[in-house]
């Protein structure tokens, strides 16, 4: 894709959300029940792959990718499985919002839109899974990634 068409700010926002999600899954794994380890690992691996791909998009556009933050403030202290799952839901919701923003700012027919739609959809699927696991109702939202 033409580097000049890449909405750099939005893509940097998506990369920052991926960095945050990777950090979050490290925290969640420490508190969630062992039965979830496989799924947590799968989610974390997906975010790492997305982070790498997003860094390549920025590098190809001649822009230095934003680095991860040394740490992140969580909306609430993570002390148990329930609060850990809520944090995972927050991370996926943030990723969904960041990728939706990439879609909104990308020109039509740009390959980046397809990649962003995939990222938004995967984030929505994980958020739904964690809501179901946490016993939250409803487990779906009508517009994943939409500003509240």
């Amino acid at each position: 894709m033409s580097p000049s068409q890449v909405p750099v700010d939005a893509v940097q926002g998506a990369l920052a959300a991926e960095h945050a999600a990777i950090w979050v899954y490290g925290v969640v794994e420490a508190f969630a029940p062992g039965a979830l380890n496989g799924q947590l690992e799968e989610a974390a691996t997906a975010h790492q792959a997305r982070r790498d791909a997003t860094e390549r998009v920025l590098t190809d556009a001649g822009v230095p990718p934003v680095p991860p933050e040394p740490g992140y403030l969580t909306p609430e202290p993570v002390t148990d499985a329930a609060s850990a799952l809520r944090l995972a839901i927050t991370a996926e919701s943030d990723a969904a919002a960041a990728w939706r923003s990439v879609i909104e700012r990308s020109p039509a027919h740009l390959g980046l839109r397809a990649a962003a739609l995939d990222a938004l959809t995967v984030a929505a699927l994980w958020a739904t899974r964690w809501r179901a696991r946490a016993g939250t109702s409803p487990v779906t939202v009508p517009f994943p990634g939409a500003p509240a």
Binding site: A96, R100, S101, I103, E104, S106, A108, R113, A116, L117, L120, T121, A123, A124, L125, T128, V139, T140, V141, P142, F143, P144, G145, A146
Partner: peptide, 14 residues
């Protein structure tokens, strides 16, 4: 596009 992306993602969850 963003609106339809959210619709698509929601449909995928269902």
């Amino acid at each position: 596009a963003a609106l339809l992306a959210s619709v698509a993602a929601c449909c995928a969850t269902h």
